[in-house]
Amino acid sequence: MEDVFYFNSIKEYNDFNNHETLHPLVSVVHLDKANPRKLRRLRYGFYTVFLKQIYCGDLRYGLSNYDYEGGTLIFLAPNQVIGENKNEYYQPQGIALIFHPDLITGTSLGKNIGDYHFFSYAVNEALHLSDQERKIVEDCFSKIGYELQHTVDKHSKHLIISNIELFLNYCIRFYDRQFITRENVNKGILERFEGLLNNYFSSDKSQNIGLPSVSGCADELHLSTNYFGDLIKKETGLSAQEYIQSKVINVAKERIFDADKSISEIAYGLGFKYPQHFTRLFKQKTGITPIEFRRLN
């Protein structure tokens, strides 16, 4: 048995779930019509959104397990892998919205699809919906489904894509709400991030490895890079990269007071490959060079 079961086309996924193909590039699939199946690792060649309405078992994404409860949205970008291979059978439940990248090519949604960062979130960073939010999601799905059932005319593609875009924009709002309602959890992550940076610069990691990266910090905190970046932005108003740079500058200011070290030594100690890059960043953030800062203080 192959390690990953791959769905290349919308029709393949529809057939797998006993669902009629009404459009070659988009579908709203009611998964309760599918046959019971074994747990498998799955990969999709298109954008996939699952609305899970009831408990349907554990799925595996990377190394993270997550229980899908009612009112949870899971987003997958093309070619992401989800699930795990087991001999257990389960009955799929919920609704899947699937759309091929070719559907949105050349449209405003196609140009801006990268702005919807949640397609790169890990499954344990899924969106949990209130009853009212779930109704809005179901209404968007219903409108897309209506257009798929409607006789194709010159308005069909525009209306389908517009409703997908509307749905995704609602999801941005709902994620903003989730960041707020999980404020205590988020603050804990922010504190761990700050502690991570403190430990990084108090050790020899910066000198041996270089400057801390956003992806490296996200990995240490067991978060996807995009979710981590969005969370830090919501909590601090700074991007994760800006937050790291701010920390670098604060540490640099402390070290500049050590007159026994040259600016180049300080730069290398912070993880810069070239001292001029440190000088450029320092002046960009403070308005003066490290040497001028040392003289003034």
Rank of each mutant, 00 (worst) to 15 (best):
F118Q: 01
N250E: 13
L223F: 04
V26K: 01
R134I: 09
R255K: 12
L73Y: 05
M1Q: 11
I10W: 00
F16N: 06
H100Y: 11
Q80P: 02
L39E: 10
G216K: 04
G94P: 04
L25D: 12
K38T: 15
K143S: 14
L223G: 00
I104S: 00
R295V: 13
T236P: 02
I232F: 07
L281Y: 03
K11V: 06
S215F: 04
F201D: 00
A77P: 03
F201C: 02
T21K: 01
R60L: 15
F7Q: 02
I95A: 02
K187P: 00
K253G: 00
I209M: 08
D153K: 08
K11F: 03
G195Y: 05
L223K: 07
E220Q: 08
K143D: 15
L159W: 11
Q93N: 14
E12Y: 06
Y44I: 07
R255D: 03
E125R: 08
K233C: 07
K273G: 15
T225W: 02
R294C: 00
G216E: 04
Y243K: 08
S64N: 12
D176R: 09
I232K: 02
G271L: 09
L166W: 05
G71D: 04
E125S: 08
R60H: 05
N18C: 06
K52H: 10
Y61S: 11
T48L: 11
L97I: 12
L190N: 02
F272H: 01
S130C: 07
K154M: 12
K261F: 06
